[in-house]
Design a binder for these strands. Structure first.
Length: 598
RNA sequence: GCCCUCAUAGCUCAGUCGGUAGAGCGCGUUCUUGGUAAGAACGAGGUCAUGGGUUCGAAUCCCAUUGAGGGCUCCA
C-alpha cells in the first residue's frame, strides 16, 4: 500500500491562517493597550496563542472586544508584507519592545530549529507587516487578511505563562485562540470540545459513583467508593494474574522508609522536592515512600546471597506511593498525590537484559490490547544536557546500547527524545492514544546500571566472583489511579464486561417478581457475575433508564412471562434487545463476552 | 509555586441595582404494581467554602485563607 504523504503542519494553509490570525489579535491587543509589550505568538495544535505583558489582567469582556476588533481588521483585506532587515534595523523598529530585542539578540547568536537544537546557519531576520501592525516573524502568512474567515475565528481563554516557560521569568498573559478554514470546521472543533467534556473522567467518576475528593482528606487524595474500588481491584487483579502467568512474583514493602536509603540510592538528590516532608522520630527520619526501587533492592539484598542460577528475579508490587506534586499540577485522577504503581523490578545479568525486555514487552502489548489501546508508539527516552543525571558515561552507554538492541530485536519502531530519561538510566516509554486522540504515557521499561551498584547489590556468577546485577524497572498500566482516569475517558464510562464494576442489573417488573429475581441473582453470582437487583418501587422504564445511565452492560427484565418460563429478558446498554432466553443461555453469553474482552 | 477564573441544597445550576434564598434531579413518606430510557402527590433539606472588612443592611462590594478548574519553552 502506498504511504500516505502527509503535509507538514508548518506547510499547511491552516498554519498560515492561525499564524496570521495571531498577528491580527496582537494588533487588536496593542490598540487596546498601546503600552503593551508583545512577545511571541505561534500556531499550535487546534489554534494559536500570543503572550503579552499588559498593564492589567484581561477579562472575558476584553476578549469579546478584541474579537470584534479582529473581525474589523480581517474585513480590511490587508496584505501581509515580508521584509528582510538587519539586526540593527530590527532593533530600531522594536526599540520600545524589550522582549523583541531579546529575541533579536538571540537570532544574532544563531537560531534554533523546532526541537530547540541550534541551527548551523544564521537565520535571516524578517518582519511581517499588515495594516498598521509590524511583528518580528519568520512567517509564513496568508497573502491578505481577507483569506481568514472572521466567522471561523474565536478567542478561547486567557492564561498565565512565564516568559520562555521559566518560572524565574516574568509572568505574561497568554491569549489562546482558535482559527479554521470555515465556520463549519470551527463548529466541529467546538463540538469536539463539548464531547470531550462529557467524557471527562472527573464528571463520569461522579456520575457513575466511582470516586470522590474531599477537602477534609486533602488535595490530590482520592477516595474510592465500593464501585470504584471494585474497578481498581479488577484492574490490578488482571495485571497481577497476568504477571504471575509471565513468571513474575509479588512482594510487599510498606509505606514508610528511612530517608537515609534515599540518600544512598540517589533519589534524595534528584527527587526531594517531590517527596512529602520528613517525619522525624527521635534519631530516625522517615519519608513516605515515593518509589519502590530502593525498597525492592533492599529486599533483594536481605534475602541472602544470590547465585546467577536464581536470576532473573522479578519483583512486582501494587504499591501506593506518595508524591508531593505541586498543588497547581493536581488534576482529577490523572495527577494525584497518592498513586498506586504496578511496579516491577527485574534483577538480572547483563546477558539477560534482552530476554527480560522481550518478556516485559509481550506483557505490555497484551495488556494494551486488552484495554483496546490499538494506537501507541514507543519513545526511547535518553538523557539530555542538564545535571540531573547520574554521571557515569560508561554505564549510560551500556544501558542505552542494551535498550536499543532489545527494541531492535523485537522490531519495535521508536523515536528518540533526549532529556526524558530517568536520572539512573534510559527508558522505553509507551505512549498510547485514546479514542479522542490524546496521548498518554502509560507503560515504561527502564534499564538501570546505576542504583544496583550504589546500593551494593551482588550476585555470584559462574566464575565464583561477585558481580552487580542489572535492574530493569517496568510498569504496565503505570498507576491504577491515572490509568483509571484514562480508561474512563477512553470507554466513556461504558467499560467492557470483564471490567464493569457491575455487570448485570436485574429489573423485576412488579413486587411479585422479587423472589424469582433473587433466585436469578444468586445463580448469576454463583456463576461469577457481578449482579444487583433493582427492587425499588419504580416502574420498569425508570429502572431501565437508571441502569442505562450507569452504563451497566446487561439488564435482565423479569416479569410474569419470565418467572413462569424460568427465563430472563435481556436488554443491552447499546439499546439492543435480544429478548427472552434461558438463564443458562444468558450465562454462557456473558461468559463469552467476558472471555473475548467485550 | 505562579497567572486567570470559579465556589449557593447530596448533584447540576438560577439568584436583577446590596434589602437575610430558588428550580430540576436526587432523598423521605404515601398512592400506583407497571413490559424496554423518567407514574403522581406531599415533605425534609442551605451559617450562600472559611475568616475578616465596608455598610443601617452583604450570597451580592473589598481583603485574606482553603479548595476546584484553565494555563505556565510546540523559542520571532
Amino acid at each position: 500500500m502506498a504511504e500516505k504523504i502527509q503535509e507538514r503542519y508548518e506547510d499547511s494553509d491552516l498554519y498560515r491562517i492561525r499564524h496570521s490570525t495571531a498577528h491580527v489579535m496582537a494588533q487588536a491587543v496593542l490598540e487596546m493597550f498601546p503600552e503593551a509589550k508583545y512577545t511571541i505568538g505561534p500556531p499550535i495544535e487546534n489554534g494559536f496563542y500570543y503572550d503579552f505583558d499588559l498593564p492589567r489582567p484581561l477579562t472575558p469582556d476584553d476578549l469579546k472586544a478584541l474579537e470584534k476588533r479582529m473581525r474589523q481588521v480581517l474585513a480590511g483585506r490587508h496584505v501581509f508584507q515580508k521584509k528582510v532587515i538587519s539586526a540593527d534595523e530590527a532593533r530600531q523598529v522594536f526599540a520600545q519592545q524589550p522582549y523583541k530585542l531579546e529575541l533579536i539578540a538571540g537570532l544574532e547568536q544563531g537560531g534554533f530549529d523546532e526541537y530547540g537544537n541550534p541551527l548551523k546557519e544564521k537565520p535571516d531576520i524578517s518582519i511581517y507587516s499588515h495594516d498598521k501592525f509590524v511583528d518580528l516573524c519568520r512567517g509564513p502568512h496568508v497573502e491578505n487578511t481577507g483569506q481568514i474567515n472572521p466567522a471561523a475565528v474565536k478567542l478561547m481563554s486567557v492564561a498565565g505563562a512565564y516568559w520562555r516557560g521559566d518560572e524565574k521569568n516574568a509572568m505574561l498573559q497568554r491569549i489562546y485562540g482558535t482559527a479554521w478554514r470555515t465556520p463549519k470546521e470551527l463548529e466541529e472543533y467546538l463540538w469536539q470540545l463539548e464531547e470531550a467534556k462529557k467524557r471527562d473522567h472527573r464528571r463520569l467518576g461522579k456520575e457513575l459513583g466511582l470516586f470522590h475528593f474531599s477537602d477534609d482528606v486533602g488535595p490530590g487524595l482520592p477516595l474510592f467508593t465500593p464501585k470504584g474500588e471494585m474497578l481498581r481491584h479488577l484492574m490490578e487483579t488482571y495485571v497481577r494474574d497476568l504477571q504471575t502467568r509471565y513468571g513474575y512474583s509479588h512482594v510487599w514493602t510498606g509505606h514508610l522508609v528511612k530517608e537515609d536509603l534515599y540518600k544512598r540510592s540517589g533519589h534524595y538528590d534528584n527527587y526531594v522536592d517531590s517527596m512529602f516532608p520528613p517525619m522525624v522520630d527521635e534519631n530516625i527520619t522517615f519519608r513516605l515512600k515515593p518509589m519502590n526501587c530502593p525498597s525492592h533492592m533492599t529486599l533483594y539484598k536481605e534475602m541472602g546471597r544470590h547465585s546467577y542460577r536464581e536470576l532473573p528475579m522479578r519483583f512486582g508490587e501494587f504499591a501506593t506511593l506518595y508524591r508531593y506534586e505541586k498543588t497547581g499540577e493536581l488534576t482529577g485522577l490523572t495527577r494525584v498525590r497518592a498513586l498506586t504503581q504496578d511496579d516491577c523490578h527485574i534483577f538480572c545479568t547483563e546477558d539477560q537484559i534482552q530476554q527480560e525486555f522481550t518478556l516485559a514487552l509481550k506483557l505490555i502489548q497484551e495488556v494494551l490490547e486488552r484495554y483496546r489501546f490499538i494506537d501507541y508508539k514507543v519513545r526511547l527516552s535518553l538523557r539530555g544536557e542538564g545535571g540531573k543525571y547520574v554521571q557515569d558515561d560508561e554505564k549510560w552507554a551500556k544501558a542505552e546500547t542494551a535498550l536499543r538492541a532489545s527494541l531492535d530485536a523485537n522490531n519495535v519502531e521508536y523515536f528518540e527524545a533526549s532529556g526524558e530519561a530517568a536520572f539512573y538510566g534510559p527508558k522505553a516509554d509507551f505512549l498510547a492514544r485514546d479514542v479522542l486522540g490524546r496521548e498518554w504515557q502509560l507503560s515504561t521499561i527502564q534499564v538501570d546500571f546505576i542504583q544496583p551498584a550504589r546500593l551494593g547489590l551482588i550476585y555470584i556468577a559462574e566464575d565464583g566472583a561477585e558481580h552487580t546485577p542489572v535492574v530493569l524497572h517496568r510498569a504496565v498500566t503505570g498507576t491504577t489511579e491515572r490509568f483509571m482516569g484514562v480508561i474512563i475517558e477512553h470507554f466513556a464510562g461504558a467499560f467492557p464486561v470483564w471490567l464493569a464494576p457491575q455487570q448485570v442489573m436485574i429489573i423485576p417488573i412488579a413486587d411479585r417478581h422479587l423472589e424469582y429475581s433473587g433466585q436469578v441473582a444468586e445463580k448469576l453470582k454463583a456463576a461469577g457475575l457481578r449482579v444487583e437487583v433493582d427492587g425499588r418501587t419504580e416502574r420498569m422504564n425508570s429502572k431501565i433508564r437508571d441502569a442505562q445511565k450507569q452504563k451497566i452492560p446487561y439488564m435482565l427484565v423479569i416479569g410474569d412471562q419470565e418467572a413462569e418460563a424460568g427465563q430472563v429478558a435481556l436488554r443491552l446498554r447499546s439499546g439492543d434487545n435480544p429478548g427472552a432466553m434461558s438463564l443458562a443461555d444468558f450465562i454462557s453469553l456473558a461468559q463469552k463476552d467476558i472471555q473475548q474482552g467485550n
